[in-house]
């Protein structure tokens, strides 16, 4: 990662370092500096490796493990089988391989949580910068709107908004709703809904950074040079808010994974045939009486591992990206 080894010649002065009168120094890039600080955070490194493995499972797993599809022919033979070599995580009441549920669920859960985070960060960053930069009534209005979203009980409103995931009742009142259609709706709308309800935390953060950055000289000089507001906000201020947004965004992904899992577990999130970690363990408690613990245990354990890895990474990023921590 070392960018270059530069030679600085010091002609006028007496040779200090070697006979040729050259001092060898190493220029460290910003990225290398960051990596040095990040590496020091043991838990963050552990989290990164763990998260990398989980991503690999999500990307490559589906090529190895067959997709869990209910097969009425083998359903009863395969029902509630405990973990074995053939089914390392056992099978559920429908004869589905729990490992398959975990592997396919990883894709949806990670994709959805990251997408929802991107929505929240995009909206939150724009609103935060605008609010902090313009101040006065713009700020007052935007921050009151943020307060509305922050004062609302999130899980309850998400459950309320899950009404958007159901298909509209057909005219005349009867008829079944298309299954494929509702699962497609859920994967598109759910991250949007989560993102649009969680942006205010990002907006508040970005606003506070913007407030201090806009006082600095380079912003004044940009304005003196005749830069327009838009240019100052998104060319000069934006790069300064990215670090805290990255940290917050990381932690939001972890939060989203748990939120989504709970909604889908209740049946108000991702709709089957798409499967997330939440849908994977829906209804699993009904089989406790039959001694089936593996169905509920493994998908949830993967949720815990993922969120743990993400929280470690977020902490490492916070320490490494904050220049005040430079030692």
């Amino acid at each position: 990662m070392i960018d270059s080894t530069q030679k600085i010649t010091t002609p006028a002065q007496a040779p200090r370092n070697n006979d040729a009168g050259e001092i060898t120094t190493q220029t460290r890039s910003q990225a290398y500096e960051f990596w040095l600080r990040y590496r020091r955070h043991q838990m963050a490194v552990f989290g990164t490796i763990l998260f990398g493995l989980l991503i690999l499972i999500a990307l490559l797993g589906p090529f190895i493990v067959p997709e869990p599809v209910v097969n009425t022919a083998t359903m009863f033979q395969l029902k509630n089988k405990p973990p074995s070599l053939e089914h390392p995580f056992g099978t559920n009441v429908n004869g589905l391989d729990v490992l398959g549920l975990v592997v396919y669920g990883a894709r949806i859960s990670l994709f959805l949580s990251v997408l929802a985070m991107l929505v929240a960060c995009a909206v939150g960053t724009v609103i935060g910068i605008v609010s902090g930069y313009f101040g006065s009534w713009v700020d007052a209005v935007l921050m009151r709107i943020a307060d509305v979203f922050l004062s609302v009980p999130l899980i309850f409103v998400l459950l309320l908004a899950s009404r958007f995931l159901v298909n509209p009742p057909p005219e005349g009142g009867t008829g079944s709703n298309g299954v494929e259609d509702s699962s497609l709706r859920s994967i598109i709308l759910l991250p949007l809904i989560i993102g649009l309800l969680t942006w205010p935390a990002v907006a508040r953060l970005v606003r506070s950074v913007t407030l201090s950055v806009k006082q600095q000289e380079f912003v004044t000089s940009a304005r003196a040079l005749g830069s327009k507001d838009g240019r100052i906000m998104f060319l000069h201020i934006l790069p300064n808010v990215i670090n805290p947004v990255v940290v917050a965004g990381t932690l939001i992904v972890g939060q989203n994974i748990v939120l989504e899992a709970f909604l889908s577990y209740l049946g108000y999130g991702i709709q089957i045939p798409l499967r997330s970690w939440g849908t994977a363990l829906a209804q699993s408690q009904n089989e406790f009486v039959n001694g089936n613990w593996w169905w509920a245990f493994f998908p949830g354990f993967f949720i815990l591992l993922t969120v743990l890895a993400i929280n470690f990474i977020g902490d490492g990023l916070r320490d490494a990206l904050d220049p005040r921590n430079k030692r």
Partner: peptide, 17 residues
């Protein structure tokens, strides 16, 4: 760290089991 990352509903299920 583990407690903070815990999916609450899953913990509930494991406790019930």
């Amino acid at each position: 760290y583990i407690g903070f990352s815990m999916p609450t509903f899953w913990l509930g299920l494991i406790l019930v089991y």
